[in-house]
Amino acid sequence: MNRLLTLLFALGLLAGPTFGQTADNPSDPAPAEYTFRFVAGDDMFYIPWSGNGEELDRLLACIAQNKAAITEGSVPVLVDGYCTSQPSEAENLALAKTRSNRVKTEMILRGGLTEACFRTQNHADKGNFVTVRLVIPATPSEAELEAQRRAAEQAEAERLEAAKRAEEERLAAERAAEEAHRAANQTETVPPVLEEARAEEPEKTECCAMGLSLRANLLRWATLTPDLGLEWRICPSWGIAVNGSWTSWTWSDKDRRYALWEVAPEVRYYMGEKKAWYLGAMFKAGQFNYKLSETGKQGDLMGGGITAGYQLRLNKALDLDFNLGLGYLNADYEKYEVIDGVRVRRGNETKDWWGPINAGVTLVWKLF
């Protein structure tokens, strides 16, 4: 058996130059298909036998030239194994698979490829060999490359021209809309000198402009207690306000009485972009005389607390101020009864109150 294999090996070396190589000139670029011969019934890949060495060198050179495309997957490596020396089809396919793996091992070790680069098929016909094919796309000619370059340049020029036209149309539309808006809002002709002066003036938000305002708490007026006040906006964020209330009512032949006066100064800090919300600190002092039942109460009150509110703008001259105050009040008073038109004292009392001390829905009129 060894003598037979040696004889076949020697015959293969002699027949290799005419039987193992393809018809391509070795000086020509590497072909896309390569064939590797195997001894019948054997799975060993004898590289020096039957021209396999020269074929492998040409394959490795082609792999090196196209390795980037192969590893990226754009150039697949097709491996087909063939075997007809075994008694059954299954045995032929198994031996063809082993031979394909032997050839792929050389490409992995010497060419730096991976198993993912191959597409392998095995066959039980045709003979005892393995073919390797590289599907290399044709290289475009210089004329084709020039045509592609010109087409790309033309497409880019058309894109830039379309973008330029779109930008010009957008700017024209913005100018037209701005002119229409200006024409709709223009109610009087402003001399150029005044227009320049206005442009130089700093912008001022009308809702938080400085000035003096007259105030009237509508809730107090609803209880027949006249209430008026003033607020001075020192700056857009700070204001000083003072409100005063006074009333004096009697009925049932002066047996019933409702009278008071109050003064409530307040410091406010306005917040937000429109300066509509505010927090403040209030001081309150006054006197009262209530007799709504058999016993009347007459005395002094004093206290203060924290206020908060929101000013709703109605127009350029009017605002509506919603406010609430929480804090402490102290009332020191005498109790009395009226007998035959004469007040009869019934003792003193002092009370402390923690909670709401002020509430208002106030109409604000901006004087200047």
Rank of each mutant, 00 (worst) to 15 (best):
Pro191Asn: 10
Pro192Lys: 14
Pro192Phe: 09
Pro192Asn: 09
Val193Gly: 12
Val193Ala: 13
Val193Met: 14
Leu194Pro: 07
Leu194Phe: 15
Leu194Cys: 08
Glu195Val: 08
Glu196Thr: 03
Ala197Lys: 15
Ala197Ile: 10
Ala197Arg: 12
Ala197Asp: 13
Arg198Asn: 07
Arg198Met: 06
Ala199His: 13
Glu200Trp: 04
Glu200Pro: 07
Glu201Ser: 13
Pro202Ile: 06
Glu203Arg: 08
Lys204Gly: 12
Lys204Val: 05
Lys204Asp: 11
Thr205Cys: 08
Thr205Ala: 11
Glu206Met: 15
Glu206Trp: 06
Glu206Gly: 05
Cys207Phe: 02
Cys207Asn: 06
Cys208Asp: 05
Ala209Met: 04
Ala209Ile: 00
Met210Thr: 08
Met210Ala: 15
Met210Asn: 14
Gly211Ile: 01
Gly211Val: 12
Gly211Asn: 08
Leu212Ser: 00
Ser213Trp: 00
Ser213Ala: 10
Leu214Tyr: 03
Leu214Cys: 04
Leu214Gln: 04
Leu214Pro: 02
Arg215Trp: 01
Arg215Gly: 03
Arg215Gln: 05
Arg215His: 03
Ala216Thr: 09
Ala216Tyr: 06
Ala216Trp: 00
Asn217Arg: 01
Leu219Lys: 15
Leu219Asp: 07
Leu219Asn: 08
Arg220Gly: 00
Trp221Gly: 02
Trp221Ala: 10
Trp221Gln: 02
Trp221Ser: 02
Ala222Lys: 07
Ala222Ser: 04
Ala222Gln: 08
Thr223Trp: 14
Thr223Pro: 06
Leu224Ser: 12
Leu224Gly: 04
Leu224Tyr: 14
Thr225Leu: 00
Pro226Glu: 05
Pro226Tyr: 08
Asp227Phe: 00
Asp227Leu: 06
Asp227His: 03
Asp227Glu: 05
Leu228Gly: 09
Leu228Phe: 10
Leu228Cys: 06
Gly229Gln: 00
Gly229Thr: 06
Gly229Arg: 00
Gly229Cys: 12
Leu230Phe: 00
Leu230Ala: 04
Glu231Phe: 03
Glu231Gln: 13
Trp232Tyr: 14
Trp232Ser: 09
Trp232Cys: 06
Trp232Pro: 01
Arg233Phe: 12
Arg233Tyr: 05
Ile234Lys: 09
Ile234Asn: 06
Ile234Gly: 04
Cys235Val: 11
Cys235His: 08
Cys235Tyr: 11
Pro236Gly: 07
Pro236Cys: 08
Pro236Lys: 15
Ser237Met: 09
Trp238Pro: 01
Trp238Gln: 13
Gly239Ser: 08
Gly239Cys: 03
Ile240Trp: 11
Ile240Asp: 02
Ala241Trp: 00
Ala241Lys: 00
Ala241Ser: 09
Ala241Ile: 04
Val242Lys: 00
Val242Leu: 02
Val242Thr: 02
Asn243His: 05
Asn243Met: 09
Asn243Gln: 08
Gly244Tyr: 03
Gly244Met: 14
Gly244Gln: 11
Ser245Trp: 02
Ser245Arg: 12
Ser245Leu: 10
Thr247His: 02
Thr247Arg: 02
Thr247Tyr: 06
Ser248Arg: 14
Ser248Ala: 14
Ser248Tyr: 12
Trp249Thr: 12
Trp251Asp: 12
Trp251Ile: 13
Trp251Ser: 10
Ser252Ile: 03
Asp253Asn: 11
Asp253Phe: 13
Lys254Asn: 15
Lys254Ala: 10
Lys254Tyr: 12
Asp255Ile: 13
Asp255Leu: 09
Asp255Gly: 14
